[in-house]
Every structure is written in structure tokens, then in C-alpha cells.
Computed example of a mutant assay.
Amino acid sequence: MTGGHSPGVRRRRLSAALKRLRGDSGMSAAEVAKRLGWSSATKVTRAERNEWKFPKRTDVEALLDLYEVEGEEREHLLSLTEEARGRSDWHQYADLFPGSLPDLEAEAVRIRSYESLLIPGLLQTPEYAAAVFEASQVVPADTIQRKVASRMARRAVLDSPNGPTFIAVIDEAALRRVVGSHIVMAEQLRFLAGMAAHYKVTVLVLPNEAGAHTAMDGAFALFDFPSPEPGIVSISTGVESLYVEDGEYVDRHTLIFDGVHNLALDPRKSLDLIVSIAAEHDKRA
């Protein structure tokens, strides 16, 4: 389930482009609406905030005419409009991903993740993922298997030729925490060690000896997209995921990630520690 593109992310890109074009034109949303004969400025601002379901080609063409966009840029934005009207490969899991996480993963060129208590979702085994969902007590029992299946399917993005590279910095505490059972943990860590050999995956362990660090406030992920698309920071809570595109916010989290990245063990030492802790779980199983 890798897909050629994500309609959800195409809509986000189109909205960002239209907002930029209006800014370059110097017109207010009210002036744009008036000149196009639209009933209110709300139609303009909703499009720019990506609050539309299916962009209308005629509306986008009218905006591009007003902003005097021609040539390759016009063709590109009209192509985005058509692609944005499609349906995501993940529509059957739409109720599980209100924040369009799979679409963001599919469109990103790089994902950087810091996890303090968990193995990253893209690197989890089914048994580990099920234990996490069961322990949360906020996931209905009848949807746990769908959640697990969707999480496993997401991993296909790493095998896609156009998929992102993935850099995961994982706190040692996540490797030692017993999720499910020692058997589940041993299998999870062996799988993690195997994924560390994937050509698009880098797994780094932040050892306990690193002490206090820049990401003490918790886990997050950074999504980088093709230039000039802005990056996104994702922060998950027990009940929702927040996705923030603010440039300053992204820059601050980039510095935070760089901090833990610099303190983490190198890939070889990280792998050795993962294998060692897996053996400890085996002994206690």
C-alpha cells in the first residue's frame, strides 16, 4: 500500500501554494473574493487553510487567472488539483488516522523520530503493537486488530522507491521496558536489530548514561518534504496526534532532535546494545 501520491498531502501543498500566491499579489482575502464574485472571503481562507474536501478545478483556475500564474507553475498546480481530488490508499483506515499520518509518511523525503518510552510505530512487531494498544485503555478492543494491521501496513512506505529515509533515536528505557512480556520484547528487539540493517533506516540508541538531554519533555517526529514544502512536527498524546507546520516550531524541534542525535550511540554500538538487551529479555522470559 505505497501509492504514487497522497491526495491529502496534495491538498495541503495546493493550499500552501495558493496562500503564498495571494501574499505575493498583495491582495486581501476579501479583495480576492470580491474580484472573483465569490460570496465571502471565507471561501478563500478555507482553501488556504486546507479546509476543503475536494478542490474544484474551476475555482483554482479562477485564482490562478487572478494571480496571473502561467506556464509550468500553472500546470503543476492544476495537476495538484486533480491529484488532490482522489481517494487515499488508506481510506479504509481513515477513522484510525484523523491526522493523515500514513499520507505524511508516504510524501516525506525524510522522517526523524525521537522516542522516549516506545519503539517507533514503523519498527514495531504485531505483538508489541497489540500490547501497546491494549495497555492504553483508550483503544476499543474491537478495533485493536485493525490498528495493528494498519500499523504493519504503514511499514511498506520504507520499501517504496520514493519512500522516506527514517532516522530513529530511541531511549534505552524503551528497550528495557517490558511491553507485553519478556518474550514479546526479545522478539521486538531482534526485529528492531534486523530493521537497523534496512538501507533506508538508521536506528540509534540514546543510552541511560547520556543523562539529561534536549528532549526530556517527550517524543516527537519531524517530517521533511521536497523543497519548498514546509516541514511538520508531530507530537502524539494518549488520545490524539498534533501536527504543527509553524516554521519556528519546526526549527526548535530540529535543534532538539540534533541534541539527542549527537548524544546517541553510533549505529554499531546501538545495534550491540539492542542485541544485548534482547538477550537479557530472553533470559527473563
Rank of each mutant, 00 (worst) to 15 (best):
P98F: 05
A197F: 01
H5K: 01
Y67H: 11
W38S: 10
A196C: 07
R46Y: 09
T42Y: 00
L204N: 03
A197P: 00
F191T: 09
P164D: 02
G26L: 10
R49E: 09
D272F: 02
P7G: 02
R10N: 03
T143S: 11
F54P: 00
A156K: 15
Q145M: 05
S39C: 03
V44H: 08
D159P: 07
G26Y: 11
A129R: 01
L66M: 04
Y128I: 05
T58R: 12
P120F: 10
R20P: 00
P98Q: 06
A219H: 01
E134R: 15
T2G: 12
F97G: 05
M27T: 08
I119K: 08
D282V: 15
L122C: 10
S88F: 08
L192E: 11
S116N: 08
A108Q: 02
E209L: 01
Y249D: 04
I256R: 08
A16H: 14
R35W: 00
G3C: 02
S39Q: 14
A129Y: 03
V132H: 03
E172W: 10
D159Y: 01
N162F: 05
L204S: 07
Q145D: 15
V250A: 06
R176I: 10
P55K: 08
A16C: 03
F97K: 05
W38C: 10
H5S: 15
A30Q: 13
E240I: 00
K19Y: 13
P207S: 05
V205C: 06
T58D: 15
M27F: 11
E280H: 11
T58A: 15
E209Y: 00
H91D: 13
R12A: 13
P140K: 02
I111G: 00
D24F: 09
V178N: 02
T202F: 00
R85I: 00
S40R: 06
S270Q: 07
M1C: 03
A197G: 01
P55T: 05
L63W: 13
D217Q: 13
H76D: 09
G218A: 01
P207I: 03
E248L: 09
I111K: 01
V138R: 02
H198G: 06
S276I: 01
L117K: 07
A219F: 00
R177F: 03
H182A: 10
P228G: 09
A212K: 04
V201E: 02
L36T: 06
D65S: 11
P120T: 05
E248W: 10
A212L: 14
R57S: 09
V9D: 07
S160H: 15
F257G: 09
P226K: 13
P267F: 07
W90H: 04
L189T: 11
E248V: 10
K43S: 12
L192W: 04
T42M: 14
R35P: 02
S40P: 04
V244S: 03
F97C: 09
A168L: 02
A285E: 12
H91I: 13
D159K: 03
D258E: 14
P126T: 04
S79D: 11
E82S: 06
F133N: 06
H182S: 13
A41H: 15
G163F: 03
A285N: 13
K34N: 09
H5I: 01
R190F: 01
I277V: 15
T165S: 14
